[in-house]
Amino acid sequence: MGDDVTVRIILAKLGLDGHDRGLKVVARILRDAGMEVIYLGLRQTTDSIIAAAEQEDADAIGLSMHNAGHMTLAPKMVEAVRAAQLDIPVVVGGIVPDDDLQPLLDAGVAAVLGPGSPAEDVARTVRDVVSANR
């Protein structure tokens, strides 16, 4: 029974920026919440994420963003998911200014998680967007 609701989520960082410490923290939070995290790590492209999402039959894609790229990269990811007819939610985590929040949601991002979101919020948000999509 439990297996029927096992959430499989891809975690990746788009683009060339920085480190993956934050992404690893999120991976552990989601694992501890009973999810299967397919960890792609740094320097991913929309293509590599789509390929992984298809092969892994992922229920969601989690993107970590720590530079200003989120306003272009996150909508590009949403667009790529649609183009691939994958129909799965994209969640963005990282530093996103308040003013950008609504535009991201308008662009089709399912949820935005700020830095230092409590573990329960992170897990619940992912669970919610996945079950809303199922």
Partner: peptide, 30 residues
């Protein structure tokens, strides 16, 4: 392995494979 406590898992094998297989017709499943 899945975590015996939560039942969840971190599946990280693709990190080591993606670089070399991105350009090829291969199918990877964790």
């Amino acid at each position: 392995p899945s975590s015996p406590l939560s039942g969840g898992a971190i599946l990280g094998d693709r990190v080591r494979m993606d670089d070399v297989v991105a350009d090829h017709d291969a199918f990877i499943r964790s």
